[in-house]
Design a protein around this nucleic acid. Structure first.
Lengths: 204, 204, 204, 204
DNA sequence: GATGAATGAGCCTTCATTCAT
DNA sequence: GATGAATGAAGGCTCATTCAT
């Protein structure tokens, strides 16, 4: 990587980090581009060399943050001995719920911004840069389902329902303990997720 | 009601209606107060006699629209013979899903704005004016659960999970047929809702 | 006084009092007519039955407050045995300085608003309603100078210089003890006032 | 000075000049920021790059204008042979009175806005840029009093009384010839100033 | 006389975006 | 590529004043 390219990456990251702090701190709508460049110590005009506008930056930030989280969960999963797909999915869900319970800022950012649309479009299609290389989520998911001895009627629908259910349900419980705290919610959550999976399973 | 009060109600409704059209049309953030008063044919200053700002209006609009919808579903439910609570809830959910399928504008408005917080705070505590009188949702729900022979571990949690699950899941299916269309989704939806209820049921 | 007239006076006074509190509290420019009528519990439209606008009210308030103060000082003077005009003026000045030292709100209001122009126009020409009747300051001053055995080159100029000097000098000393406190300032003040008087005196 | 810095100074001065004309023309409260930028031919947003608001601009304008005047009076004083401090002060006062008599706009602006507080805070502490360099008024005054063979009880109080007396007294006389014109007032003014000085002088 | 809902002109301020340096 | 001063459209909001009741 040349010195120029390195410098470019530094600038880009400075903008992303400043934006993440501001978005989670006072919300995206009260964050101006002036705020972002001021906090990152970069000139205003430079912003436009890296992003189209505030929302372009946000989208890239979501993909970045959600990708990191999924990669971590994936790695953790690989260190387990779970082989049954249902167990693997439940582990994955639990890992993410626990992680978000520890990291409320990330939770707030993701639930306000992550949608199935963005998930499919970016996390699914694009490849993710990791330290070990790249991950293609679409491909990973496909592989997982193909390799599994259990078969499902509509895997994508199943994933969709789980993501939406967990995502929408977890937010208020973690942040406000409303209507119950996350520890109380979790057993119901897990059981429901297991039901969703079994409901889709094709019994041979 | 005096002529003045009548006129005030007219103005308030004109603002609410104009705002609803604009919010659903181009989104709340691209809708300015100028837009709202212009469309409703009311002077700008008058806006501030009825609402604190755009977001105050939005909150009142959500409560109004969601209230209407719930009252309708409630009425329809009363015309059925369902007595088992599980069946009543499922009917309620199906009614709302069907209604939102027909009325995509309302769907878009509600799913983008309705949260458990607003539901609890407004729909729960305040009473709703209807043509036949007022409805206190908190009280209605409480009564329903008390009168039911079936008992549940945590009724509020159950309602919460159902609302969040249905609300988050239905949006993309109805509007974009993604990942599947609503008719495909519905059976899974209903089965999962039934599971959630049974999972909370106390077996005597 | 009829019941209607009585009511009118009540309303007028309510407005004057509310305005005085607001003007001294947050300044005239940050006080709106809405503020005044709200605090006085009177309808907005009614304001315009009594005053042309905020500044009309202010002028009437100044005349009212300054008049009260001068009448008090005048009364106190009559209870003394001072006969020499110089002594009488000095007593008058000291009385007012002491009074304003005790009543900083009035001081702030008057020094920010009272000018020679208003003094001449209103306190001089108009008559003041008191409990014992009316006082015409112009006439009082004229009489005082005519009755005095001491004669002065230009009595009006003398009064002007004393008022402006004392008025401008006393404010910062009382309120902020800057550059010195009022007790330190007073001897110099008095001596200078005496000089101003002597400088105008015609020695026969 | 680079081209950019030069341009910035031009913009700033254009705003200051436009504001001065408007403030003296129709008063600060009837002058809007829109008026100022319109007259100076500068975009509205640019105003906020240089000043916080209308009042921030006014304060900087007062300091600027009063500073100019004092520097001129100081220069004129240096061209005289007056050595006795009393004579030097009297010359200074007369110079300023004469100057303001010729320049009624400046008079109106300064008497409405200049106060002892601003004088102390800005003219006293900060240094003034002149063509020949900078002047520190605090230091100049201190030096003058230290070098003078005559000593005074409280030099600051003396200056305060003179400034307030002259400032408050001169306005109406110059602008409205009320209660007398400035030429009639001047002898009394000067005599009183001389008295104030002598009254503070320490006779050895 | 009294009311207060309604008005709409006009203010301050922010901000995404541009472009000369 | 990087900068940041300049722009001006657009938004939120206030408020003196009017007038039908």
């Amino acid at each position: 990587m040349g010195k120029t390219d390195e410098n470019k990456l530094l600038k880009r990251n400075a903008l992303l980090n400043a934006a993440y702090e501001l978005f989670t701190g006072k919300g995206i709508h009260k964050t101006s581009i002036s705020d972002i460049v001021e906090r990152s110590g970069i000139a205003k005009g430079t912003f436009y060399l890296y992003f189209l506008d505030k929302y372009d930056l946000r989208n890239k930030l979501i993909v970045h943050k959600a990708g990191e989280l999924f990669i971590q969960a994936e790695k953790a999963l690989e260190n387990t001995n779970y082989t049954v797909l249902e167990d693997r999915i439940v582990f994955f869900v639990e890992y993410i719920v626990d992680y978000l319970t520890e990291n409320k800022t990330l939770l707030a950012f993701l639930t306000k911004n992550l949608s199935w649309g963005i998930f499919k479009e970016h996390l699914g299609k694009q490849t993710q840069m990791t330290e070990e290389g790249e991950i293609d989520f679409q491909w990973v998911l496909k592989t997982i389902f193909e390799q599994s001895p259990q078969k499902f009627k509509d895997p994508e629908l199943m994933i969709y329902m789980i993501i939406e259910f967990v995502g929408s349900t977890v937010y208020s419980a973690i942040l406000y303990q409303e209507p119950v705290d996350i520890q109380t919610l979790k057993p119901y959550l897990i059981r429901t997720v297991r039901f969703m999976i079994q409901d889709q399973e094709i019994i041979l």
